[in-house]
Design a protein around this nucleic acid. Structure first.
Ligand SMILES: [Mn+2]
Ligand SMILES: [Mn+2]
Ligand SMILES: [Mn+2]
Ligand SMILES: [Mn+2]
Lengths: 219, 219
DNA sequence: TGTAATATTTAGATTTGCCTAAATTTAAAC
DNA sequence: GTTTAAATTTAGGCAAATCTAAATATTACA
């Protein structure tokens, strides 16, 4: 449907617009894609003709709904392949991006969805970035557990996955409740435990089991 | 290293030269790649410049060792991905070719080799075609078991994988020995059993266990 | 062996995506 | 408010891969 290049442009513009309200700047796109501003201008006109984005000279660009859909589909594929490479093929999380940049352009919705299923519908990629589902909906941030957070993240405890009395009592014993702020100081590879700082004060070691049962939002 | 298009040309020429000794004809290549003879001629000159094949006007082409290596690497990737799609993602064997045509161009030797390992170093793809190993060596034909053969194949029994007395006695009881010719009449999806005709005569039902322990060569 | 049919190559163009250099617009600084 | 700097766009061109139409070579066969 769309070319390799078109998908890369749309994904770059999508990421550049993620935080800011303003349209993506020509120079910023060029830098992200390791190309020249003049090439970007050429391409923006073509993508505009195809109704994938709205372009006004000198004003930067914004994706249309169609453009956003294509971009998010590409992000979905990219992140699913990264999960595959790390979880199934035992790649390191630092070496998968490059390969996923290629795999994200494979055209087959069925493949993407079967891969998603094979991976047990992961919500986050190896870098902690959220993976949109088949309907292109991103996971609710409150679905994220502490396990899925990255080193140095600062998060707020929003809920528990395990609602057993045992778990809740243990949390009380740790002085760990809803609304607490946690800073991830260490992630131990050996047993997936974490060292965290609570409310900028005391330190705590949390086992993998605890981390996996705490819903948090990233600050 | 090589483009999508270059790999496709080399693979096509490789397959066309597989049986015949003669070089691949321009028209045959064009047909295989759904393109025009004139485009093929253009491309052959470029591939010749890159020492991937030997081209003499009007004489057809033959791959150089380098060209053959690139072609076989591509075949390896294609067939490994097909195994992945069928064995891991549960695609039907009839729907994987198209997707593998895309996946075969992903550039990463490490990925290919890790995928190979993840799939437990398969020797044949879902269509029964042999998969070259990391060193680009094709499996010895005598490594092929009856299980890996396709419907209507006619094969010769060349050996047994299970050398237990139990198995050999059972074979004797079935009147099935080395040198016998088997025609595969049916492959039962339910239990992977096969109905075969022995030496053009009597019919036999062989369980999956039996098939998986018979080394054969395709006639 | 000469002619017709077939295969192949050349010529001239097109599309996609990219580049450099020059011109133009917008934003920043004085 | 000019002037200057930065961002962006235009102009002109190039390489890869393709196409159609025309020219040439090979092969088939009368
Ligand atoms: Mn990535
Ligand atoms: Mn990622
Ligand atoms: Mn195939
Ligand atoms: Mn195959």
């Amino acid at each position: 449907m769309y070319t390799f290049t078109e998908e890369n442009y749309l994904k770059a513009i999508y990421h550049l617009s993620e935080n800011t309200k303003k349209g993506a700047a020509t120079n910023a796109i060029a830098e992200r894609l390791n190309t020249k501003a003049a090439s970007v201008t050429d391409m923006l006109k073509k993508l505009s003709d195809k109704k994938l984005l709205v372009y006004k000279k000198y004003q930067g660009v914004n994706l249309t709904d169609l453009g956003k859909t294509v971009a998010i589909k590409t992000v979905r594929k990219h992140r699913l392949w990264e999960v595959f490479l790390v979880n199934k093929l035992e790649f390191g999380w630092e070496e998968v991006h490059e390969i996923a940049e290629q795999l994200e352009h494979i055209q087959s919705t069925k493949l993407t969805d079967k891969l998603d299923e094979f991976l047990a519908f992961p919500k986050y990629d190896p870098h902690g970035d959220p993976i949109p589902n088949k309907d292109l909906v991103f996971p609710n941030r409150t679905d994220q557990t502490l396990t899925e957070c990255s080193l140095n993240d600062i998060v707020i405890v929003k809920g528990v996955k395990d609602t057993s009395a045992d778990f809740l009592n243990y949390l009380k014993k740790l002085n760990l409740g809803l609304g607490e702020e946690l800073e991830i100081l260490e992630k131990e590879d050996y047993d997936n435990s974490m060292k965290v700082k609570i409310n900028g004060g005391s330190l705590l070691n949390l086992s993998h089991q605890v981390c996996a049962n705490l819903f948090v939002i990233t600050k």
